[in-house]
Design a binder for these strands. Structure first.
Lengths: 252, 252
DNA sequence: ACAAAAGTGTTCGTTCTACACCCATGC
DNA sequence: GCATGGGTGTAGAACGAACACTTTTGT
């Protein structure tokens, strides 16, 4: 999310004005519509899900679609993506990443639109109800998305986002963004199994994760799911930052 | 380069028209300028280089800049990038990849421009002269780019492109795009050393590469550089495709 | 006491790393 | 015949993959 960093590239608008009196090299160039679409990932049960809504406009009314919006003049594309997620989930401070920009001429038949795709990783529980009710947005397991009718090139976007997530989750500890603060080793493993689409050995997985010493084992056990109860763990972001600064590389 | 594939998302313009008579959901949205910038990589000597030119327009006249251009109405962003490279190097069929889209509001002070960055991998020799002469574009070793004054956020673009190349070169055989058809093991190793910014063991490297059986060892030896002369190798794209289809994964 | 999930170690094979000497050739 | 870069193998360490039994506890 480079756009959002408070640096010299993106200062407060107040400090700037557009000099429209001088002719510039970009004078006479054509302008196009720009939008963002967000692949919002959430994990529950044992599978990764994605949030879709029914597209409300003809001629694709009723098709499934990613959540998106147009980019406004005084809004960075990162902010446009962030606002889309916030508007539809009520969540801010969501982990987001830009995926790819789709710019084929006729990808949207009715207008030339260039769309930048982002993915977002959110923790599902607290927002699930609000979402479904307020906006008719629903969660779909990633394994089923291929069978849905998606608008435009949204299936491509979904695939590219998933591919990028799948790659990144292996060398950055971003999987934890999808889990609650406290989680069991089984939940964590299920998450990775769903994203990577392969089963992982229980013993090898927990050995590998615990060896990194990024997780704090809590005293508390999970109740209800089993007689014995599984210990909760917490991801220690601060610890990761320290280790990363010393050259530690996360890897699954 | 998804845009360029001849698929249903990007059919011939003739088959389409924009229906401007019906009001659409995107009516009333604001349009923005879109451009592409290309990080053109080339390898010679023992280092990876990048092609830059002197920006000719005030107020950044004389700063170094990536090669770029605006996106036109009937041109995909992939084509815009491809055309930029072709216009300035005379090369088509160049390996290109989209890197990232930069969309901060004031990144270009004089106008709101959204720019998608691509990188291109080209074989330097045959074009080197033409380029330098015709357009005042010059090659800079990647280790020196940080010391140059680049226009706008072009340094960021360069860094992100290099980062993406560095990652991708490890799991896809794209390094060969930067080399001539015939190359020695030393040249190949120098290439990887320059991209990955670390030295690689001569024996281990050639073992690893040759084990993949992607290279054909030619009878011909390099002349002039040493008494003995090093054997030339050729990358067998077809062989790679076959192996990849069977699940083979390239990895350095 | 038993059912159900949690937790835990070892062995083996593969891969990675480090390292040094002889070879072929042009001069 | 000698100087120069080219080419090659082995041993030890680290890592990844496969695999099964005991523990805990609610009913």
């Amino acid at each position: 999310m480079l756009d959002s960093l408070p640096n010299k590239l993106n200062p407060s608008p107040v400090a700037h004005f557009r000099d429209t009196s001088t002719p510039h090299y970009h004078a006479g160039e054509i302008s196009l519509l720009n939008s963002v679409d967000c692949v919002i990932f959430g994990f529950y049960g044992t599978e990764l899900h994605v949030l879709l809504h029914r597209f409300p406009y003809a001629p694709f009314k009723g098709f499934w679609a990613l959540l998106g919006g147009f980019v406004h003049l005084e809004e960075s594309i990162d902010d446009a993506a962030r606002n889309t997620v916030e508007r539809l989930t009520g969540l801010d401070n969501v982990y987001m990443e830009q995926v790819y920009t789709f710019g084929a001429v006729y990808r949207v038949p009715t207008e030339r639109v260039i769309t930048t795709c982002y993915y977002a990783l959110i923790e599902v529980e607290p927002t699930l109800v609000k979402l479904s009710n307020d906006y008719g947005a629903t969660w779909h397991p990633i394994s089923k998305v291929g069978q849905l009718d998606l608008v435009y090139d949204h299936l491509l976007m979904f695939e590219k986002a998933l591919e990028q997530l799948r790659r990144k989750v292996r060398y950055q500890p971003i999987g934890f963004e999808l889990l609650p603060d406290k989680f069991t080793m089984l939940e964590l493993r299920n998450l990775y199994e769903s994203i990577l689409e392969r089963s992982l050995d229980k013993r090898n997985f927990s050995k590998k994760i615990l060896n990194m010493s990024l997780l704090q084992k809590l005293k508390e056990k999970q109740k209800g799911t089993s007689r014995r109860g599984a210990y909760y763990f917490r991801f220690e972001e601060k610890r990761y930052q320290e280790l990363a600064a010393k050259g530690f590389l996360f890897e699954i």
